[in-house]
Amino acid sequence: MPTLDIYWSFRSPYSYLAIDRLVSIRDEFAIDVHFRPVRPLAMREPDFFERGRKQFLPYLFRDAPREAARLGIPFSLPNPDPINMDMESGKVAPEQPLLNRVMDLTIAAEHFGKSLDFAQALSRRIWSGEDWSSEKALNDIAASVALDIAALDAWITENSDEIQSTIARNEANQLEYHWGVPLMVLDGEPFFGQDRLDSLIWRLKEIDAKRQ
């Protein structure tokens, strides 16, 4: 069975724009999907926005809503931002409680076979502009995909080292192919960006991976 690794970030608007189609791909094709969340680029490369080109963010803020409108996907900026960062200076705070929380929960959800579904539900909420970070909101989001937040938290408490090693492994493996997200790797063949999902689907059809 073909294997599809998905490298994905909660702060990436393009990851959000891809998530519904990634779920559809999982459901439509007979493939072994591994969802591999990574931290945002601003945390993986803390000086990225400080040294980056000035056109990067203005273009991003124009392009992502435009793509959302083209795809018919609701889009609002997160409130709060999943990471603590000074947008003017590009400096990233050393402590990241919100991002750590969602990464812990998502990796725990993988233990219960629900990480892609949890990421879909949570990213929809994050990019709706509505409250997503309160414990009540996270509990509701988990429940919407048949996950129990108490069970997730119990697993997190017992597996903190495994969580950190999983994140490190995901990020190291991602860099074998590309630094950006969403990144889909089908049996070693990388497809970078939500605008390459059609290419991924074409390849899956070419290898006759559609469910019978």
Score class of each variant (00 low, 15 high):
residue 133 S to P: 02
residue 4 L to M: 08
residue 6 I to A: 05
residue 114 K to N: 08
residue 82 P to T: 12
residue 68 A to T: 07
residue 210 K to E: 12
residue 41 L to C: 05
residue 7 Y to N: 02
residue 54 K to E: 11
residue 34 H to A: 08
residue 151 A to T: 10
residue 156 I to A: 07
residue 162 E to G: 03
residue 208 D to W: 01
residue 197 L to S: 10
residue 44 R to M: 13
residue 52 G to Q: 07
residue 5 D to F: 02
residue 163 I to W: 12
residue 60 L to F: 01
residue 5 D to E: 15
residue 51 R to N: 00
residue 127 W to Y: 11
residue 22 L to H: 02
residue 172 A to Y: 05
residue 35 F to G: 02
residue 121 A to L: 05
residue 21 R to A: 12
residue 4 L to Q: 07
residue 170 N to P: 04
residue 180 G to W: 01
residue 100 N to C: 09
residue 178 H to I: 04
residue 147 L to K: 06
residue 40 P to Y: 09
residue 154 A to H: 10
residue 141 I to N: 03
residue 77 L to W: 10
residue 178 H to L: 03
residue 103 M to S: 12
residue 86 D to S: 03
residue 141 I to S: 09
residue 85 M to K: 06
residue 190 P to I: 15
residue 89 S to A: 03
residue 39 R to G: 00
residue 118 F to A: 08
residue 156 I to S: 08
residue 92 V to S: 09
residue 69 A to S: 07
residue 109 A to C: 11
residue 185 V to G: 11
residue 81 D to V: 05
residue 212 Q to E: 06
residue 210 K to V: 11
residue 132 W to D: 03
residue 22 L to R: 09
residue 34 H to V: 10
residue 142 A to G: 09
residue 9 S to C: 01
residue 38 V to H: 05
residue 57 L to N: 04
residue 187 D to Y: 04
residue 155 W to L: 08
residue 92 V to H: 14
residue 106 T to D: 13
residue 203 R to D: 07
residue 132 W to Y: 07
residue 171 E to W: 04
residue 68 A to H: 01
residue 32 D to Q: 01
residue 202 W to L: 12
residue 59 Y to G: 13
residue 19 I to M: 14
residue 54 K to M: 07
residue 35 F to S: 11
residue 157 T to Q: 14
residue 113 G to I: 14
residue 17 L to W: 01
residue 55 Q to C: 04
residue 2 P to W: 11
residue 1 M to P: 00
residue 17 L to N: 03
residue 76 S to I: 00
residue 185 V to E: 15
residue 209 A to Y: 11
residue 62 R to K: 15
residue 177 Y to W: 05
residue 129 G to V: 07
residue 94 P to D: 13
residue 173 N to A: 14
residue 91 K to L: 09
residue 20 D to Y: 05
residue 94 P to L: 09
residue 86 D to K: 07
residue 38 V to D: 05
residue 139 N to A: 10
residue 179 W to F: 06
residue 158 E to P: 00
residue 62 R to T: 00
residue 156 I to C: 09
residue 112 F to I: 12
residue 99 L to A: 04
residue 96 Q to I: 02
residue 110 E to K: 15
residue 64 A to L: 05
residue 147 L to C: 05
residue 66 R to S: 06
residue 91 K to R: 15
residue 167 I to H: 06
residue 80 P to T: 05
residue 132 W to L: 07
residue 47 D to H: 13
residue 13 P to K: 09
residue 181 V to G: 03
residue 46 P to R: 13
residue 101 R to N: 14
residue 174 Q to M: 15
residue 17 L to T: 03
residue 1 M to F: 08
residue 41 L to E: 12
residue 78 P to E: 08
residue 28 E to W: 01
residue 88 E to D: 14
residue 57 L to R: 15
residue 175 L to M: 14
residue 42 A to R: 11
residue 83 I to W: 04
residue 182 P to S: 14
residue 10 F to P: 02
residue 120 Q to G: 03
residue 175 L to F: 05
residue 119 A to M: 03
residue 162 E to L: 13
residue 146 A to Y: 11
residue 210 K to R: 14
residue 143 A to P: 00
residue 152 L to I: 11
residue 140 D to H: 10
residue 185 V to H: 12
residue 53 R to G: 14
residue 62 R to P: 00
residue 114 K to Q: 15
residue 52 G to E: 15
residue 120 Q to I: 02
residue 14 Y to V: 02
residue 209 A to M: 10
residue 173 N to Q: 15
residue 150 A to P: 00
residue 55 Q to H: 04
residue 70 R to A: 15
residue 116 L to S: 07
residue 141 I to K: 08
